[in-house]
Design a binder for these strands. Sequence first.
DNA 1: ATGGTTGTTGGACAA
Length: 257
Amino acid sequence: MKIVTWNVNSIKVRVPHVCDYLRATAPDVLLLQETKISDDKFPALEIEDLGYTIALLGQRTYNGVAILSKHPMEDVIRGLPGNTDDEQSRYIEATIQGLRIGSLYLPNGNPLGTEKFDYKLRWMGQLRDHAQAMLRDDVDFALGGDWNVAPEAQDLFDPGAFLEDAIAHNESRALWREINYLGLTESFRALHPDLAQAWSYYDYQRGAWEKNHGIRIDHILLSPRVADRLIEAGIDRDERSRVQPSDHVPVWCVLAD
DNA sequence: ATGGTTGTTGGACAA
C-alpha cells in the first residue's frame, strides 16, 4: 500500500498536477492539505474519473484537507476528536483497508508570541491525545500531512535562519517528540536516517528552489504494527520543477500488503 | 538590503 501526502496550496490551481501525479504513480491513498476550497466547489469529477474515492473537509480561502483513495473509505471523521469546535478545517480521517489514515494540516504557528503559536501548541496537544487514544484502543494508523515542524537541524537548509520560527521552535519540537515517543515511526527518516537536503517545502520567495533552500515539514507517522510493514519511503522533489508548482512536494511511504 | 512570491480575493492576510 502506497500512501502519499501533499500540501497542494489550492486544489483549484493544482488539479492538473494532482491528476498527472495519480496517473504516473497510482498511489493507494493521496492525502491533501491546503485545498482552499469549500466542499461543493471541490473538483471531484476529474479525480473520480481516475478511479479515486474522495473524502473532504474543505474551507473557503484557507486550510482544507482531503483523502483520495483507490479503495473504499469507511467511518470518516472530520475535525480532530476532542476539538470538534475548531473553526479551521485541518483534519480528516478514514478507515482504508483496515487502517485509520489521517490527513492533517498542522497550524504554522508564526509569529511566535501570538495567539497563532498558542493555537499550534494546543492543536499538537490534541493530536497527541488522539494518537494516544488510538494506541490505547489498539488501532493501526498512519498520520500524514503538513506537520509544520522541522524535527531536527538537518531538516532545515539553514538552521540559523529559523531560530525565531514556530517550525523549529523548542516547544514545537518538544510536542513533536512527545507524539513520536508514544511509539510512532516517522517513515521517511526511519529509512533514510542520514539523508541530507531531503526537503519537502521550498519557499516561493528568494529563489529557494533554484538555491536548494528547502525544509522538511511534511511527514507520515506510523503506529507500531504499521511501521513493521514499512518497506520504502521517499520525496518527489521533481514536482517542484513543474510549471506553477505547489511550494510543497509529495512525501510518500510504501507498506507491505 | 526587513526585500522577495503565490493564492484567494478584490485589500489584506497567510504562508
